[in-house]
Design a binder for these strands. Structure first.
Lengths: 168, 168
DNA sequence: TTTATTAAGTCAACATGGCTGACCTTAAAA
DNA sequence: TTTTAAGGTCAGCCATGTTGACTTAATAAA
């Protein structure tokens, strides 16, 4: 934190601003995960299952290795939830024809339904937040969040299309 | 999700935009917590300890009940980490003179040092992200994140002061 | 003043989801 | 043919969330 100003309170104005960002992110993430967690509990699942379902749904034919790169957890941690999701028919695996070591994963119909139920609560939350602001705020939100992500992984989220949100 | 448009791909443009927001939040939080986690591991602590240290540091003389409202965990979950932090002299507790049932918590010198070490990595991350954008983007970031937080808790993060960030 | 109520602490028990390290199979690449 | 890569699996550990019941001490209410 080399370039932070300090004052007599051992408390810089910039530090205050940065801490507010930290807290906003903490509270937002806390609430963002709270609704899906309740739905997952009905199925005996946890947040880890949601993440797997989400990213398989979002990236059809994803491999285990790619999923590990996204989630940044160990193979064993992933295997625990993935095995259950395959056994209970939420996720389908089939060998990649061009490299039969790889297994391409997709959501089953059942998996898609659960994914939609879970993610719709989060999309509704974003939709409300977006509607309370404007296009410029949303763009700023995206740019700052992108800057918080480690540079190497910023490209994982598709950049905005040219089409603007319906407000404005 | 009443007002989402749909197209032939069962895929609306708005849905794409909302999902990008979800993913940005996921990746940002993932990376935001990764650096403190490494430091905490050296002390035998976890993310839960960081959260307690952070919010006690940020809210001197906070009570257990208030901390529970912030963290949204059970008393037992908090007690486990809090007991350790008090025993190992990171946090001080003293009875509130005006209501001796309440215990007011503050960071010790040792606690302040660890807090600074942990949080400085996150502040540095925000500082970098903020410096890559501009005042308007930061303000948009804050407004959208605030909108994602459950309305009741939005006031927990102090609103911006009139003083602007040093860029622009 | 007796009776709630509140703040905090505690115990036992359980589940989720991280982790490590070792090891195996199969398939592709060198 | 040997090495590497993708994936799976086992045993065990730890952190951190959960519930429910119960206790103590102090304040507030009847």
């Amino acid at each position: 934190m080399a370039d932070l100003k300090t004052n007599l309170n051992n408390y810089s104005l910039d530090e205050e601003e940065l801490r507010q960002g930290i807290e906003l992110l903490f509270y937002a993430y806390r609430d963002f995960t709270s609704e899906p967690d309740k739905i997952l509990a009905k199925w005996g699942f946890g947040r880890a299952h949601h993440r797997v379902i989400y990213f398989v749904g979002r990236n059809p034919n994803i491999t285990v290795t790619e999923l590990l790169l996204i989630l940044q957890i160990t193979k064993q941690s992933l295997a625990r939830v993935l095995t259950i999701l395959v056994k209970e028919n939420f996720i389908n695996q089939r060998a990649d024809p061009s490299d039969r070591r790889r297994k391409l994963m997709t959501l089953t119909e059942k998996g898609q339904q659960l994914e939609k139920e879970l993610t719709s609560t989060q999309m509704a939350r974003f939709n409300r937040a977006y509607n309370e602001t404007d296009t410029e705020a949303i763009e700023g939100f995206r740019r700052v969040l992108r800057g918080i992500i480690n540079p190497h992984d910023r490209a994982r989220v598709r950049p905005r299309t040219g089409l603007s949100h319906r407000r404005n």
